[in-house]
Nucleic acid binder design. Structure first.
Lengths: 109, 109
DNA sequence: ATATTTTTCCTACAACGTATAACAAATCGT
DNA sequence: ACGATTTGTTATACGTTGTAGGAAAAATAT
C-alpha cells in the first residue's frame, strides 16, 4: 500500500474541490488559497502529469474560449483510483493524529 | 513557510508518541503500527538524520544496557521547531480536508 | 502581420525516500 | 579469553519526487 505524498494529496484535493473547473490556473490558485503554497506552473504541470501517469487523475482538453488569450485548457478530473488513494491517506492521517491535540504540542517554555 | 513532507510528519509524530523511548527500533515499529509502512533501518536513519540537520529533532546517545547486544542507543527528541512544524502541517491538513467527508469521495459506481 | 494575453510543455537539477550491506558494541558460552 | 550471537547504527548508492525558468502554442486585438 503506497501512500500519497504531501504534494499528491494537495493536488488531488484541489482538483476535487474545483470539480469541473480544474485546470492549471485554478488549481494553482486553489493550492495557494488552501495551503499557502505558491507553485510555479512548471512545477505544477510536471506533478499533474505524474499523477495522470499513475492513474490518479485524467485530463481532457476544453474548447478554446472566445476571449483574449483564451486558448484550450487542460481540464483535470479525479479517477476512482485517485479517490481511493485520498480515502486511504485520510485514514492514515487520522491514525497518526489520534489522541494528539495541537495543545499537547504547544511549546511549553 | 515550508511544509513538512509526509515522511517527516510520520517520523516526528512517531517520536512524539514514544516520548523518551524513541530510538531506531521503537520508531520503526511505531511507524509500522500506525501507518502500515515498513521502513528499512537504512531508510529510517537517513531520514532521521535529515530531520536533525533541519532542527526538527535532536538526539543523544544512551548508556549501554546490560543485556545481550545492549549497545548504546541513539535517542531522538522533538525540538520546539519540530513541534511548531507539526502544528502547522496539522492546520494545513484541516484546511485541505475542511468540508470533505470520506463519504463524498467514495466511488459511486 | 505583429503584439499581447493566457495557458501549457520542456528541461534540468535539487531534495527526498529507500534498500543493501558494512560496521560497531554489547553479552553469552565454552 | 575470544569467537558467536544479538542489537543497533552508519555508509553508500540510486530511483522518485519537487521545483523553477523559460520556450512554445493558441487565442484575440490593433
Amino acid at each position: 500500500m503506497k501512500l500519497l505524498t504531501r504534494s499528491e494529496e494537495i493536488l488531488l484535493l484541489a482538483v476535487w474541490r474545483l470539480q469541473d473547473e480544474a485546470y492549471g490556473v485554478t488549481i494553482r490558485d486553489q493550492v495557494a488559497d488552501v495551503t499557502g503554497k505558491k507553485l510555479s506552473f512548471g512545477a505544477l504541470f510536471v506533478s499533474l502529469d505524474r499523477l495522470i501517469r499513475k492513474g490518479h487523475l485524467k485530463s481532457s482538453m476544453s474548447d478554446p474560449l472566445p476571449v483574449r488569450g483564451g486558448r484550450k485548457r487542460k481540464m483535470y478530473e479525479l479517477t476512482d483510483k485517485g479517490r481511493v488513494a485520498l480515502c486511504e491517506i485520510r485514514k492514515v492521517e487520522r491514525a497518526m493524529w489520534k489522541g494528539i491535540s495541537e495543545a499537547a504540542l504547544e511549546v511549553s517554555s
